[in-house]
């Protein structure tokens, strides 16, 4: 009996957000960068779950929290095919569309170690541009342009 109840506690979400189809390996990073544990709400993380399309995937459920459109778009940098579902009363009431944002503020550190943003009281700020083969991020301060994967990997 206890086993069954336990399973339901983990899986069912009364209200909150489910972030699904995260590429395997990115789940913990998203948790950390978006400070999802800081809300002091119940967070469930699934790692390396089987997925039909992706082989394996990560998944995050967070109770009583709805991501802003801005946060959802920033998520798209890690999980281009991710889905964000808003749950109310155990039912999906809305799917948030993920679109690569034009700018990203305060989430990533600039990979350029001589960039002034590391030592001054400012938030990091990148403008994002999607090209044919890559997504490029340009730091507002040092004006250096990086491939998205380099920026995302820095911390």
């Amino acid at each position: 009996m206890t086993e069954k109840v336990y399973a339901r506690n983990v899986e069912a979400l009364k209200s909150g957000t489910v972030i699904d189809h995260i590429p395997a390996g990115q789940g913990l990073r998203i948790l950390r960068l978006f400070q999802l544990a800081e809300y002091r709400e119940r967070v469930t993380v699934g790692l390396n779950l089987p997925s039909g399309h992706m082989g394996s995937k990560d998944l995050i459920k967070i109770e009583n929290v709805v991501l802003s459109e801005e946060q959802a778009n920033e998520l798209a940098l890690f999980a281009p095919r991710g889905t964000v579902s808003v749950i109310e009363d155990f039912a999906v009431v809305r799917k948030q569309k993920l679109a690569i944002p034009d700018t990203v503020e305060g989430i990533f550190a600039c990979p350029n170690s001589n960039c002034v943003s590391h030592v001054e009281p400012v938030q990091s700020h990148f403008s994002v541009r999607v090209t044919e083969h890559d997504t490029k991020m340009k730091c507002k301060y040092c004006e250096k342009v990086f491939s998205k994967d380099i920026v995302v990997d820095v911390r």
């Binding site: 001589n114 960039c115 001054e120 400012v122 730091c139 507002k140 301060y141 040092c142 004006e143």
Partner: peptide, 28 residues
């Protein structure tokens, strides 16, 4: 002029008068 890249841009966000960049690291 400042050795850090982006210094002039940061300065412009805190200055009440125009900032003229005379060189910020290897940037501009």
């Amino acid at each position: 002029r400042h050795p850090k890249e982006g210094a002039a841009r940061v300065a412009s966000e805190f200055s009440s008068v125009p900032i003229i960049n005379g060189g910020d690291g290897a940037n501009q």
